[in-house]
Design a protein around this nucleic acid. Structure first.
Length: 222
DNA sequence: CGCTTTTGACCGGCGC
DNA sequence: GCGCCGGTCAAAAGCG
């Protein structure tokens, strides 16, 4: 079957990468996801096409938390589309999405809770690939206010680009989520933010001030 | 003073 | 095996 071949291809894909494009109103970066919930839950992963886009209302209806539905509705109200590009480079992300949606995980992933002191040795050897996705935003500011607190740990000029790539790590203890921020060479006004991993906590300034519910916490794994 | 950013060094993966 | 490249480390500097 075709699925079989696709699965094998997923195993070999070195870079799990979903591409999450947003078209926020007024180029206002503070209104971009992620906001602690799992934005990719919004996508119809069974879609066979290569670049699948869904109307906002469809995406919103598939969000599990009413609070997030409400939040996304206010942020992305109107006819804008969100899209997850399906390409060979994205098979991993789609596979992991399937896993994420298909089986409600038993709370915590294997990698969570690994102490920081082991990081250095683990990083080199671990074959467990963190799920990733990108957000493309038109913005003058590099770093999106996504509700989490980040610490910059590196900057690198990558080949064939004129803009440096910045590396950030979530400042929360035991949270290993990272993100990379770079500008498009072709369009310097466009910022590409690549998230890797899942948060094990709520955003530092949450959607509301109350304690998160269990279902919200589940969402925060993304 | 504590936290964050900067930046050169280092490391591992990968292609040749 | 070697060199290139992306990603990370960590000491020093910056900042509130």
């Amino acid at each position: 079957m075709q699925n079989q071949g696709l699965l094998e291809e997923q195993q070999e894909m070195p870079t799990p990468m979903g591409f999450f494009s947003t078209f926020p109103p007024n180029n206002n970066i503070t209104s971009c996801p992620p906001l602690g919930c799992h934005p990719l839950k919004a996508f119809n992963i069974a879609a066979p096409d290569h670049h699948h886009a869904l109307p906002t209302e469809t995406l919103l209806s598939s969000l599990s938390s009413p609070k997030h539905r409400e939040h996304f509705a206010s942020d992305f109200g109107g006819p804008r589309l969100l899209s997850l590009q399906r390409s060979s480079a994205n098979f991993w992300a789609w596979g992991e999405l399937n896993e994420c949606l298909g089986s409600k995980k038993n709370g915590v992933d294997d990698h969570l809770g690994v102490s920081a002191m082991k990081m250095k040795r683990i990083k080199a050897r671990r074959k467990v690939r963190e799920p990733r996705f990108c957000i493309k935003t038109m913005s003058e500011v590099d770093v999106l206010d996504d509700g989490y607190k980040w610490r910059k740990y590196g900057q690198k000029v990558v080949k064939n680009t004129q803009h440096p790539r910045s590396y950030y790590r979530c400042t929360q203890d035991n949270c290993r989520v990272k993100k990379r921020v770079e500008r498009l060479a072709e369009d310097p006004g466009m910022v590409i933010t690549t998230y890797e991993g899942r948060h094990v906590h709520s955003p530092s300034h949450d959607l509301d001030d109350s304690q998160p519910t269990d279902s919200q916490l589940n969402n925060f794994f993304w």
